[in-house]
Design a protein around this nucleic acid. Structure first.
Length: 301
DNA sequence: AAAAATGGCAACCGCTTCAGC
DNA sequence: CGCTGAAGCGGTTGCCATTTT
């Protein structure tokens, strides 16, 4: 089958660019700059509209474009930024030198969206999916994520995880395989199992996306973490300030009201893995999200 | 082996924002 | 201010390659 010539009514060429056209465009821009995109095609001798030229240059021909596979760091950064910025591809692209918004958008739509869904996360909200058919699998995945976060955080973050997530501390303890003895050490600050993996403040941002799944949607995101970042005087960070989704609800207020460690949770038994009873361990004001979730879970056959 | 389905990606379309007047 | 053309942006399309049936 012949490839369609793709000329519109005005006679301008559309569709894929030939190497010849690319060369004409690159040569022209290197010599004269792009100037007015509208005027460029005529000056350069291209049978294209200005918009097509701009797109070709910006998304493909620009010399500073970095092609090829996204690194793990880039991938994490995109997920991270997307949880804050949503589908603002251009804004996200400004944090990934050499990557275009188009490339990031494509990468998101073809890879990352699926990846989040496989993790049981909603790719729009970055919170656990409630449409997941197998809620048990979902919860297990969430717990695995939590455990992963916990084992890579320092003790303060672990405690905050409990606070933010409203997950029962006994469950988190359970995840970590703690028994009563070493839990005490843990709370005493002995940092069992963690001392070698204290997180540099610069990397706290990396935990933002995965942790956000535990946050009630209407709460400030990571207010404390931001303060922590500021206080540590870490070298300049190019990430945007995290936005407050709703100013009415502040998690820090909650933190002030309660001790970081809930006495009830501290003393509770290391649980069996019976999820049906998890609700009993929840704080009184535990996020309705989790209650619904657990209800759904326990009503499953 | 062939057809159909799926995946990956460049490029397009049309709406929004910006800049100059 | 409002108007207008240019540029920016995000969603969508459609082509090609690969995988599945």
């Amino acid at each position: 089958m012949m490839r369609t010539p793709m000329n519109d009514e005005s006679g301008l060429k559309k569709g894929p660019w030939s190497p010849e056209e690319d060369k004409i465009l690159v040569d022209h821009i290197q010599k004269h700059g792009h100037g007015s995109w509208r005027a460029l095609p005529k000056l350069a001798g291209l049978n294209r509209c200005g918009k097509s030229c701009r797109l070709r240059w910006n998304n493909y021909l620009r010399p500073d474009i970095r092609r090829g596979k996204f690194s793990d760091e880039e991938e994490n950064l995109i997920i991270n930024l997307h949880s804050v910025l949503g589908n603002k591809w251009a804004a996200i692209a400004t944090h990934l030198p050499g990557r275009t918004d188009n490339e990031i958008k494509n990468f998101w739509n073809t890879h990352l969206k699926k990846k989040l869904m496989q993790m049981g996360l909603d790719p729009v909200t970055h919170r656990p999916r409630t449409d997941h058919l197998d809620l048990l699998t979902n919860l297990q995945q969430i717990i695995l994520n939590a455990a992963n976060i916990v084992t890579n955080c320092d003790i303060n973050n672990v405690l905050r995880l409990q606070q933010y997530s409203q997950l029962p501390q006994c469950l988190i303890n359970d995840l970590l395989g703690f028994n009563h003895n070493n839990i005490q050490n843990f709370y005493d600050g002995s940092n069992i199992g963690f001392s070698s993996q204290i997180v540099h403040p610069n990397h706290l941002q990396n935990f933002q996306a995965p942790l956000q799944q535990f946050l009630p949607q209407e709460c400030d995101y990571f207010q404390n973490f931001d303060e922590q970042m500021d206080n540590t005087n870490v070298s300049s960070n190019t990430l945007p300030k995290l936005v407050s989704v709703s100013p009415q609800c502040s998690l820090t207020d909650k933190l002030d009201e309660e001790n970081i460690i809930n006495e009830k949770d501290r003393s509770c038994n290391i649980s069996s893995s019976s999820f049906e009873t998890l609700g009993d361990f929840m704080n009184e004001d535990a996020d309705a999200y989790w209650k619904d979730f657990l209800e759904q879970l326990s009503s499953q056959p």
